[in-house]
Design a protein around this nucleic acid. Sequence first.
DNA 1: CCGATTGCAGCAAACGTTTGCCAATTATTG
DNA 2: CAATAATTGGCAAACGTTTGCTGCAATCGG
Lengths: 335, 335
Amino acid sequence: MPPAARPARRATLADVAARTGVAISTVSRALTRPERVNAATRERISAAAAELGYSPNTAARALGSGRTRSVAILVSDVTNPFYFDIIRGAQQELGPAGYTPLLLDTEESEELEEAMLRRLRASYDGAIIAASRLTDRRLAELAQAVPLVAINRQTRGVPSVFIDTPAGVGQALEHLVSHGHRRVAYAGGPLTSWPNERRWRAFRTAAERLGVEVSRVGPFEPRQSQGAAAADAVLNTGASATLAFNDLLAIGMLQRFAERGVRVPRDLSMVGCDDIFGADFCHPPLTTITAPVAQAARVAVSTLLAQLGGESRMRQGVTLPTHLTIRASTGPAPG
Amino acid sequence: MPPAARPARRATLADVAARTGVAISTVSRALTRPERVNAATRERISAAAAELGYSPNTAARALGSGRTRSVAILVSDVTNPFYFDIIRGAQQELGPAGYTPLLLDTEESEELEEAMLRRLRASYDGAIIAASRLTDRRLAELAQAVPLVAINRQTRGVPSVFIDTPAGVGQALEHLVSHGHRRVAYAGGPLTSWPNERRWRAFRTAAERLGVEVSRVGPFEPRQSQGAAAADAVLNTGASATLAFNDLLAIGMLQRFAERGVRVPRDLSMVGCDDIFGADFCHPPLTTITAPVAQAARVAVSTLLAQLGGESRMRQGVTLPTHLTIRASTGPAPG
DNA sequence: CCGATTGCAGCAAACGTTTGCCAATTATTG
DNA sequence: CAATAATTGGCAAACGTTTGCTGCAATCGG
C-alpha cells in the first residue's frame, strides 16, 4: 500500500514552512499574494506545498481574514424547479471565481429567511436572495448589514436582478387577444410573493389597454398539486384563456384540465411563466413567458462579487428581458 | 429608528461574558453543554446572549473544535433533476439536526470529485456522495479518511444506501413480456456510472430468464438532449420496447419519437428509471421504475450522522426497494 | 563611498471559539 | 466536625490563518 503513509493530520502552513525553512507568514503570502514574495522562494514554497498536499483550512482562513469565499444562496423552496436554474446559474459563476455556494432553504418563511441570514452571517461573504419574503423595510435594513443581491425583487437600496416577466405578460395577453380571447383569468401565486403582484398588475393593465375582461383567482401555493384547485377556479370564471403565476402551477392545471375533459387549447388556452424544466414536454407543451433564470443568477452573482470586491459604482438594478415562447397550449378562442 | 443602534460588530462570547460578569469559557459551556453549568448562571447567560443577539461564529467554532456542522453533498451534475430529490431529502434530514448542506457539483469528473473532497476537507464533517465516479479502490481509501456515505454505489468498506432499481428492471421486463414484447433494447448511460452497469446486468439476466432478445445501445450522457441519439439507435435495433438508463434520457427519447412519428406505446413501448419530476406529465406519461430518491438521501444522511456521532456498530449497507409505476408509455407489442 | 530607497522575510498579535486542567466553593459522609 | 467528594467557574493554551509592523540586506543615486 504505497500511499498508505499518508499523514493522518492535514498539512498546515507550519508544515510547509518547516519544510522550506521560511516563516509561516512567508508561506501564507507566497500562496495568497505571490507578488509580495521573491520568485525563487515562492517556487520552493509552492513545491513543498504541492508535495505535502497542502490546502488551506477554510475555517482558519475565515477567522483570520473575515472572508469565507462562500456565498449564501437563499431559495424559498429547494423543491421548486425554478430554483434549479438559479442554483445552476449561481454555481456556474461561483465556481470559476473560487467561491462555494451555501444553499439555504427558507421554506417560504420570512422569519427563517432572516434568522438564517443572521445566524450564519460569519459563514458567507455575501448572499443571493431569490424570491425574498421579507418586507421592503427589513430587506433594505438587511442590505445595509450584509452584501446581498436580490433576484426578482426591486427595493430601494437593494441591488437586484429583475426578470421582466411583467413585460412578457403584456405580450402574452396580446397573443391571446389576437386569437380572439375576450375573457381572461389570472391564477395567482402567494400573496407574499413580490413578482406575483407585479405580474397581476401587468396583467390587469394590459387587459385594460386591450379592452378585455379579467378576473383573478387564488392565491395558490406555487406547487403542481395546487393546480387542481386553480384549474377549477379558472373554469368557474368563464374565461377562455388563463395565465398562471408560474409554470409549476400551470402544469398542475393542465393535468387537471385533462382529468376534467377540458381540451387545451381547444376549450381553453393556458399560458405559464418562467419556462421551467418540463414546460416543453408537458402535454400540451406549454406556451410560457421564458425567463432567463440561470442568466439572472449569473448576473446576480457577478454583481455580488463586484460588490464584495469593493466596486463602489455598482449597478443597482439590472433588468433582464423575457420573451414569449409559444407552444401548443394556446390557440384560438372557442366559439 | 429604534433598532438602529445595532452594533456594527457581531456580538462575541466575550461580549456576553462581559455583560454577565462571568468568564468566556463559562458562557461557551452554558451554550453548548448546559449541564456543565449552574442553572441560575445559565439563565443569566442565555438572557444576555439573547439581548445581544449573540450567535456563534461558525468559523471560530470549527477551528476550535474541528467540527463544522456541515455535510458535503456531492452530485455529479446539479442540473439533473434526479439530484433535486437528493438535495431535498438531504436538506430535510440535515436541517432539523442542525447541519447545513455544502452542495458540490463534481461535473461528472473523477478528478474534481476527489479534489473537492480533499480541498474542502476542513469545511465539512462528512459527505454524502451521490453517484460517485471514483473507482472502488479510491472510494474505499477515501472512506478511510473521510466519514462518508455513498448513494447508489456498493463498495466494500463504504457505507452506502442502494436503491434497488435492478430489481425493478426485472419487474419492468416482465411487464413488457406480458404485453408480448420479444425484442427489447437498453439505452445505456455513462460507462463510468456504477448503477448503469447494474441496470444493464439486471436487464440482460432478466431477458435471458424470460427468453427475450436484448440489445444495448449507448453510452449516452444522461441528458434530455441525448435522447434523440438514443431514440434513433433504439429504432435501429428493431426492438419493440426499450428501457432507458434514466427518465431524463427517456423523456428526451419520447420527444424524438414524437418528432419521427413513432407512436408510443403503439409502435414502441418505453420504460424509464427513477420517476423524476416530469415523468408523470410528459407525453405520454412515462412508465418508470420509481425510486425513493428523497428517502435514500434521508437515510444516507441519518447513517452519516450516526457515524459522526461515533456509533460503531453501523449499518454498512442499506437497500431501498423500488416499484414499477405503470403509466401510458407502455402497451402491447405491435403486430 | 555614503545615505536613502526599496524589496523581502520574519515576528507577533489578532480572529472567536473549545476544552483540559485546576482552584474554589459547596455538599456529603462517617 | 473534619475529611472527602462533587459541582462550578476560571485560566490559558490550543486551532490555522492573515496581516501590520519591523528589520535587514541589497540596490541605487549622487
